[in-house]
């Protein structure tokens, strides 16, 4: 058999390289850029009583006359009305606090799993991941049963004699924190665990050998070396929590005004798709900032390598 013509194989290789590079871009274009463009377009329209419920961005008015109408009022309204700003700030506050709580709770758990005997690790990881097998919604509903005035928690506390009257936890900001931390903790633990298992134990031995007590060794060696895991876990918690809708809706009270809820009410109650889109775009812009920061940090940590 004669060998295939070199030109054919070169062409084939080029094709496969094109496909390899092209697929991620195609994916990105199809599932990120296109929806983003649609949302952006809606955010520049005006609400209308029609199907779809917003005006068209461009219109052929006459032969050869194209009218493009760009409505910036939605952005102006979101920027000027302190309701949106305060919702945004509240969302950020909830996200920051929950991320910190997840970190405080998740780090010791990830550390314990990463340092547990090998045969236990899979079991312990399974216990972390197991709740995912139940619907997210059902798990949040379960918290209603736990936190409500005559729910499990209050009953237990009263039975123990710690309190006389039920604590009002459900429908408060506290309930939102509990629900969010519970739901997002695994997203903190898993990247941290992945990071900590890669940590060379001889580094800690070296630190001890050089006179470093365990706590200090943790601060000077383990913690800085797990920074990538901390950043990844924090992003995985922070970003979705900023836009979280379900948990504040089910567990939160009237005060827990979060941007996700506001977005819902603009989209559904007010049928104001353009304003909801403008809000979504601003939220996205807001979330891009920490993401870029993370990217920078990672580049700085890896950039020093040859």
């Amino acid at each position: 058999m004669p060998a295939p013509l070199p030109s054919a194989s070169v062409r084939h290789r080029r094709m496969s390289r094109l496909v390899n590079i092209g697929i991620p871009y195609l994916w990105l274009g199809l599932f990120f850029l296109l929806p983003f463009a649609i949302v952006l377009q809606i955010s520049l329209a005006e609400p209308a009583l029609a199907q779809p419920p917003y005006t068209a961005l461009w219109q052929w008015v006459d032969e050869g006359l194209l009218r493009i109408e760009i409505n910036l009022r939605n952005f102006m309204m979101v920027a000027q009305d302190d309701l949106y700003l305060s919702a945004l700030l509240n969302s950020l506050q909830v996200a920051v606090i929950c991320t910190l709580l997840c970190l405080l709770l998740g780090y010791p758990m990830a550390y314990a799993i990463a340092t547990a005997p090998e045969r236990w690790r899979i079991t312990l990881l399974m216990l972390i991941v197991l709740p995912f097998w139940t619907s997210f919604l059902i798990r949040v509903y379960a918290w209603i049963g736990i936190l409500k005035p005559n729910g499990l928690l209050n009953d237990a506390l009263i039975w123990l004699g710690l309190i006389d009257t039920p604590l009002a936890i459900l429908h408060t900001q506290t309930a939102v924190y509990i629900g969010v931390v519970y739901s997002y903790l695994p997203f903190m633990i898993l990247p941290l665990y992945a990071n900590l298992t890669r940590l060379d134990p001889s580094l800690l031995e070296a630190a001890a050998d050089l006179g470093c007590r365990p706590m200090r060794a943790f601060l000077r060696v383990t913690l800085p070396l797990s920074m990538a895991g901390i950043v990844a876990g924090s992003m995985l918690v922070f970003i979705p929590v900023v836009g979280e809708f379900v948990i504040p809706d089910l567990l939160g009270g009237p005060e827990s005004l979060m941007v996700g809820k506001l977005l819902w009410s603009e989209f559904f109650s007010n049928k104001d798709w353009p304003l909801a889109s403008a809000l979504a775009i601003l939220l996205l812009a807001l979330l891009v900032v920490p993401f870029v920061m993370m990217q920078r940090l990672q580049q700085r940590m890896e950039g020093s390598r040859p």
């Binding site: 001889s202 580094l203 070296a206 630190a207 001890a208 050998d209 050089l210 006179g211 007590r213 070396l225």
Partner: peptide, 20 residues
């Protein structure tokens, strides 16, 4: 006596240099 209080030092096989 724990490692961090002993008057000895060790050079590790993998060197165990702190990468950061």
């Amino acid at each position: 006596v724990p490692a961090y209080s002993r008057p000895v030092n060790m050079m590790f096989q993998s060197y165990a240099l702190f990468p950061h």
